[in-house]
Protein backbone atom coordinates (compact mmCIF):
# COMPACT_ATOMS: atom_id res chain seq x y z
CA UNK A 1 0.00 0.00 0.00
CA UNK A 2 1.40 3.31 -0.96
CA UNK A 3 1.17 6.52 0.96
CA UNK A 4 -0.07 8.44 -2.06
CA UNK A 5 -3.45 7.22 -3.14
CA UNK A 6 -3.70 9.47 -6.16
CA UNK A 7 -0.98 11.31 -7.93
CA UNK A 8 -1.44 13.72 -10.82
CA UNK A 9 1.69 14.64 -12.76
CA UNK A 10 1.90 17.62 -15.09
CA UNK A 11 -1.47 17.03 -16.68
CA UNK A 12 -2.35 18.87 -19.91
CA UNK A 13 -5.52 18.57 -21.93
CA UNK A 14 -6.82 20.34 -25.04
CA UNK A 15 -10.32 19.95 -26.46
CA UNK A 16 -10.57 19.07 -30.16
CA UNK A 17 -11.36 22.71 -30.96
CA UNK A 18 -7.97 23.67 -29.51
CA UNK A 19 -9.24 25.03 -26.22
CA UNK A 20 -6.67 24.41 -23.49
CA UNK A 21 -8.82 23.15 -20.65
CA UNK A 22 -6.13 21.83 -18.31
CA UNK A 23 -2.67 23.33 -18.05
CA UNK A 24 0.13 21.61 -16.25
CA UNK A 25 -1.75 20.42 -13.20
CA UNK A 26 0.09 18.37 -10.56
CA UNK A 27 -1.02 17.33 -7.09
CA UNK A 28 -1.07 14.34 -4.80
CA UNK A 29 -3.73 13.04 -2.48
CA UNK A 30 -2.92 10.87 0.51
CA UNK A 31 -4.85 7.80 1.56
CA UNK A 32 -7.95 8.72 3.54
CA UNK A 33 -7.67 12.41 2.78
CA UNK A 34 -10.60 14.61 1.74
CA UNK A 35 -9.72 17.19 -0.85
CA UNK A 36 -11.95 19.89 -2.27
CA UNK A 37 -11.43 21.18 -5.80
CA UNK A 38 -13.01 24.58 -6.30
CA UNK A 39 -13.13 27.08 -9.10
CA UNK A 40 -15.57 29.26 -11.04
CA UNK A 41 -17.73 27.96 -13.90
CA UNK A 42 -15.52 26.82 -16.76
CA UNK A 43 -12.38 26.68 -14.61
CA UNK A 44 -11.80 23.07 -15.66
CA UNK A 45 -13.06 21.13 -12.65
CA UNK A 46 -15.24 18.71 -14.60
CA UNK A 47 -12.58 18.17 -17.25
CA UNK A 48 -10.10 17.37 -14.50
CA UNK A 49 -12.47 14.80 -12.99
CA UNK A 50 -12.98 13.20 -16.41
CA UNK A 51 -9.21 12.94 -16.80
CA UNK A 52 -8.87 11.34 -13.37
CA UNK A 53 -11.52 8.75 -14.25
CA UNK A 54 -10.05 7.98 -17.64
CA UNK A 55 -13.12 9.17 -19.54
CA UNK A 56 -10.79 11.61 -21.26
CA UNK A 57 -7.09 11.04 -21.80
CA UNK A 58 -4.53 13.83 -21.31
CA UNK A 59 -2.37 15.30 -24.05
CA UNK A 60 0.54 14.71 -21.77
CA UNK A 61 1.10 14.00 -18.13
CA UNK A 62 -0.10 11.12 -16.01
CA UNK A 63 -2.64 10.13 -13.44
CA UNK A 64 -1.48 7.43 -11.01
CA UNK A 65 -3.96 5.61 -8.84
CA UNK A 66 -2.24 3.64 -6.13
CA UNK A 67 0.89 3.85 -8.30
CA UNK A 68 -0.84 2.43 -11.38
CA UNK A 69 -1.00 4.79 -14.34
CA UNK A 70 -4.46 5.36 -15.82
CA UNK A 71 -4.46 4.00 -19.36
CA UNK A 72 -6.90 2.15 -21.60
CA UNK A 73 -5.47 -1.15 -20.36
CA UNK A 74 -5.76 -0.42 -16.67
CA UNK A 75 -9.21 1.18 -16.89
CA UNK A 76 -11.33 -1.72 -15.60
CA UNK A 77 -9.08 -1.97 -12.53
CA UNK A 78 -8.83 1.77 -12.03
CA UNK A 79 -12.58 2.25 -12.26
CA UNK A 80 -13.13 -0.35 -9.61
CA UNK A 81 -10.87 1.64 -7.31
CA UNK A 82 -12.35 5.04 -8.08
CA UNK A 83 -16.05 5.70 -7.96
CA UNK A 84 -17.51 8.89 -9.35
CA UNK A 85 -20.86 10.36 -8.36
CA UNK A 86 -22.23 12.58 -11.11
CA UNK A 87 -23.69 16.00 -10.57
CA UNK A 88 -27.12 14.99 -11.89
CA UNK A 89 -28.26 11.71 -10.30
CA UNK A 90 -30.62 11.24 -13.24
CA UNK A 91 -27.55 10.56 -15.38
CA UNK A 92 -26.38 7.86 -13.03
CA UNK A 93 -29.62 6.13 -12.15
CA UNK A 94 -30.64 4.74 -15.49
CA UNK A 95 -32.31 1.48 -14.51
CA UNK A 96 -35.93 1.05 -13.49
CA UNK A 97 -35.32 0.08 -9.87
CA UNK A 98 -32.83 1.35 -7.33
CA UNK A 99 -31.67 -2.21 -6.72
CA UNK A 100 -30.81 -2.80 -10.37
CA UNK A 101 -28.99 0.49 -10.51
CA UNK A 102 -26.84 -0.30 -7.51
CA UNK A 103 -26.27 -3.82 -8.88
CA UNK A 104 -25.30 -2.56 -12.33
CA UNK A 105 -21.59 -2.15 -11.55
CA UNK A 106 -21.08 -5.41 -9.63
CA UNK A 107 -22.95 -7.32 -12.34
CA UNK A 108 -20.66 -5.85 -14.97
CA UNK A 109 -17.74 -7.26 -12.99
CA UNK A 110 -19.48 -10.61 -13.36
CA UNK A 111 -19.82 -11.28 -9.67
CA UNK A 112 -22.16 -14.05 -8.63
CA UNK A 113 -25.74 -12.92 -8.03
CA UNK A 114 -25.32 -13.79 -4.36
CA UNK A 115 -22.30 -11.55 -4.05
CA UNK A 116 -24.07 -8.84 -6.01
CA UNK A 117 -26.92 -9.03 -3.54
CA UNK A 118 -24.55 -8.74 -0.58
CA UNK A 119 -22.87 -5.69 -2.04
CA UNK A 120 -26.10 -3.97 -2.95
CA UNK A 121 -27.57 -4.57 0.48
CA UNK A 122 -24.44 -3.24 2.14
CA UNK A 123 -24.26 -0.16 -0.08
CA UNK A 124 -27.93 0.67 0.46
CA UNK A 125 -27.54 0.24 4.21
CA UNK A 126 -24.51 2.48 4.22
CA UNK A 127 -26.40 5.38 2.70
CA UNK A 128 -29.54 4.52 4.67
CA UNK A 129 -32.00 3.80 1.87
CA UNK A 130 -32.53 0.03 2.18
CA UNK A 131 -36.27 0.62 2.21
CA UNK A 132 -36.14 2.18 -1.26
CA UNK A 133 -34.52 -0.74 -3.04
CA UNK A 134 -37.54 -1.70 -5.14
CA UNK A 135 -38.56 1.85 -5.95
CA UNK A 136 -38.08 3.41 -9.35
CA UNK A 137 -35.35 6.08 -9.39
CA UNK A 138 -37.71 8.58 -11.01
CA UNK A 139 -40.02 8.36 -8.04
CA UNK A 140 -37.39 9.42 -5.50
CA UNK A 141 -36.88 12.85 -3.96
CA UNK A 142 -33.73 14.82 -4.75
CA UNK A 143 -31.97 13.71 -1.57
CA UNK A 144 -32.97 10.08 -2.04
CA UNK A 145 -31.75 10.16 -5.64
CA UNK A 146 -28.41 11.49 -4.51
CA UNK A 147 -28.12 8.76 -1.87
CA UNK A 148 -29.02 6.11 -4.47
CA UNK A 149 -26.40 7.47 -6.87
CA UNK A 150 -23.79 7.26 -4.12
CA UNK A 151 -24.88 3.70 -3.32
CA UNK A 152 -24.54 2.76 -6.98
CA UNK A 153 -20.88 3.76 -6.70
CA UNK A 154 -20.28 2.30 -3.24
CA UNK A 155 -21.40 -1.14 -4.42
CA UNK A 156 -18.24 -1.21 -6.53
CA UNK A 157 -16.32 -0.92 -3.25
CA UNK A 158 -13.99 1.83 -4.41
CA UNK A 159 -11.09 3.26 -2.40
CA UNK A 160 -11.56 6.74 -3.75
CA UNK A 161 -14.86 8.59 -4.03
CA UNK A 162 -15.10 11.43 -6.50
CA UNK A 163 -18.07 13.73 -6.17
CA UNK A 164 -19.10 16.36 -8.68
CA UNK A 165 -21.21 19.02 -6.96
CA UNK A 166 -22.73 16.62 -4.44
CA UNK A 167 -24.99 19.18 -2.76
CA UNK A 168 -26.36 20.96 -5.82
CA UNK A 169 -30.16 21.16 -5.94
CA UNK A 170 -30.63 19.75 -2.45
CA UNK A 171 -32.84 21.29 0.20
CA UNK A 172 -31.08 22.28 3.46
CA UNK A 173 -32.06 19.16 5.40
CA UNK A 174 -31.01 16.79 2.61
CA UNK A 175 -27.79 18.73 2.24
CA UNK A 176 -27.07 18.42 5.94
CA UNK A 177 -27.76 14.68 5.83
CA UNK A 178 -25.50 14.26 2.82
CA UNK A 179 -22.64 16.13 4.47
CA UNK A 180 -22.77 13.96 7.57
CA UNK A 181 -22.97 10.91 5.32
CA UNK A 182 -19.86 11.99 3.44
CA UNK A 183 -18.04 12.66 6.70
CA UNK A 184 -18.88 9.18 7.91
CA UNK A 185 -17.08 7.54 4.95
CA UNK A 186 -13.50 6.51 5.42
CA UNK A 187 -12.76 6.63 1.70
CA UNK A 188 -10.29 8.98 0.13
CA UNK A 189 -12.54 11.74 -1.18
CA UNK A 190 -12.31 14.34 -3.91
CA UNK A 191 -15.18 16.80 -3.92
CA UNK A 192 -15.80 19.61 -6.37
CA UNK A 193 -18.37 22.21 -5.51
CA UNK A 194 -19.48 25.79 -5.81
CA UNK A 195 -21.07 25.39 -2.45
CA UNK A 196 -18.00 26.34 -0.46
CA UNK A 197 -19.79 25.74 2.81
CA UNK A 198 -19.94 22.08 1.85
CA UNK A 199 -16.22 22.13 1.18
CA UNK A 200 -15.58 23.71 4.57
CA UNK A 201 -17.50 20.96 6.26
CA UNK A 202 -16.17 18.00 4.34
CA UNK A 203 -12.63 18.70 3.15
CA UNK A 204 -9.46 19.26 5.10
CA UNK A 205 -7.49 20.42 2.08
CA UNK A 206 -8.57 22.51 -0.93
CA UNK A 207 -7.19 23.07 -4.40
CA UNK A 208 -8.25 26.20 -6.28
CA UNK A 209 -8.37 26.09 -10.07
CA UNK A 210 -8.64 29.00 -12.43
CA UNK A 211 -8.58 28.74 -16.22
CA UNK A 212 -7.19 25.22 -16.11
CA UNK A 213 -4.38 25.95 -13.69
CA UNK A 214 -3.90 25.43 -9.98
CA UNK A 215 -3.67 28.87 -8.36
CA UNK A 216 -3.67 27.82 -4.73
CA UNK A 217 -3.53 24.72 -2.60
CA UNK A 218 -3.64 24.36 1.16
CA UNK A 219 -5.70 23.87 4.27
CA UNK A 220 -9.38 24.51 3.53
CA UNK A 221 -9.87 27.08 6.27
CA UNK A 222 -6.83 29.07 5.18
CA UNK A 223 -7.84 29.07 1.53
CA UNK A 224 -11.47 29.84 2.11
CA UNK A 225 -10.74 32.79 4.36
CA UNK A 226 -8.41 34.37 1.83
CA UNK A 227 -10.88 36.84 0.45
CA UNK A 228 -8.49 38.27 -2.11
CA UNK A 229 -7.64 34.88 -3.58
CA UNK A 230 -11.27 33.80 -3.78
CA UNK A 231 -12.35 37.03 -5.40
CA UNK A 232 -9.57 36.69 -7.95
CA UNK A 233 -10.88 33.22 -8.86
CA UNK A 234 -14.51 34.24 -9.20
CA UNK A 235 -15.46 32.77 -5.83
CA UNK A 236 -16.73 34.11 -2.54
CA UNK A 237 -16.02 33.32 1.06
CA UNK A 238 -18.43 30.68 2.40
CA UNK A 239 -21.25 32.11 4.46
CA UNK A 240 -20.26 30.14 7.52
CA UNK A 241 -16.89 31.87 7.50
CA UNK A 242 -18.13 35.37 6.66
CA UNK A 243 -18.72 38.06 9.22
CA UNK A 244 -22.13 37.69 10.69
CA UNK A 245 -24.64 39.44 8.44
CA UNK A 246 -26.89 40.36 11.32
CA UNK A 247 -24.61 41.62 14.04
CA UNK A 248 -21.55 42.21 11.89
CA UNK A 249 -19.31 40.59 14.46
CA UNK A 250 -16.05 39.38 13.10
CA UNK A 251 -14.97 35.80 13.57
CA UNK A 252 -11.43 34.96 14.30
CA UNK A 253 -11.18 31.89 12.12
CA UNK A 254 -7.74 30.94 13.19
CA UNK A 255 -8.76 30.50 16.80
CA UNK A 256 -11.85 28.63 15.60
CA UNK A 257 -9.72 26.57 13.27
CA UNK A 258 -9.52 23.54 15.51
CA UNK A 259 -13.23 23.59 15.97
CA UNK A 260 -13.86 23.73 12.23
CA UNK A 261 -11.62 20.86 11.42
CA UNK A 262 -13.05 18.70 14.18
CA UNK A 263 -16.68 19.54 14.84
CA UNK A 264 -17.91 21.80 12.12
CA UNK A 265 -21.53 21.82 13.09
CA UNK A 266 -20.67 22.90 16.55
CA UNK A 267 -18.76 25.89 15.19
CA UNK A 268 -21.75 27.03 13.21
CA UNK A 269 -24.07 26.66 16.11
CA UNK A 270 -21.97 29.01 18.21
CA UNK A 271 -22.13 31.68 15.53
CA UNK A 272 -25.90 31.41 15.39
CA UNK A 273 -26.20 31.69 19.12
CA UNK A 274 -24.08 34.85 19.19
CA UNK A 275 -26.34 36.50 16.61
CA UNK A 276 -29.48 35.72 18.47
CA UNK A 277 -28.06 37.32 21.55
CA UNK A 278 -27.09 40.45 19.68
CA UNK A 279 -30.52 40.72 18.07
CA UNK A 280 -32.17 40.66 21.43
CA UNK A 281 -29.80 43.27 22.76
CA UNK A 282 -30.48 45.64 19.91
Amino acid sequence: MSYHMLEVRELNFDYPDGYEAIKNISFTIRRGESVGIIGANGAGKSTLLMLLMGVLFPKNGQVLVDEVAVSKKTLPMIRQQMGMVFQDPDDQLFMTTVYDDVAFGPRNYLLSEQEVNQRVTKALELVGISHLKDRAPFRLSGGEKRAAAIASVLSMEPDILIMDEPTSALDPKSRRRLISLLNSFEHTKIITSHDLDTIVETCSRTIVIKAGEIVAEGKTVEILTNEELLDHCGLEMPLSLQNCSICGSEKDFFTEKTKYSTTNTYGIQTIERDCRVSLVEN
Binding site: M50, M53, V55, P76, R79, Q80, G83, M84, F86, D88, D90, D91, Q92, F94, F104, G105, N108, Y109, S152, V153, M156
Partner: peptide, 14 residues
Protein backbone atom coordinates in the same frame (compact mmCIF):
# COMPACT_ATOMS: atom_id res chain seq x y z
CA UNK B 1 -27.28 13.64 -21.50
CA UNK B 2 -26.84 10.40 -23.42
CA UNK B 3 -23.10 11.02 -23.36
CA UNK B 4 -23.13 11.53 -19.58
CA UNK B 5 -25.23 8.43 -19.07
CA UNK B 6 -22.82 6.49 -21.21
CA UNK B 7 -19.92 7.81 -19.13
CA UNK B 8 -21.60 6.81 -15.93
CA UNK B 9 -22.24 3.35 -17.37
CA UNK B 10 -18.69 3.03 -18.63
CA UNK B 11 -17.34 4.04 -15.22
CA UNK B 12 -19.14 1.02 -13.86
CA UNK B 13 -17.47 -1.19 -16.44
CA UNK B 14 -20.29 -1.35 -18.98
Amino acid sequence: RAQRIYDSMALRNF
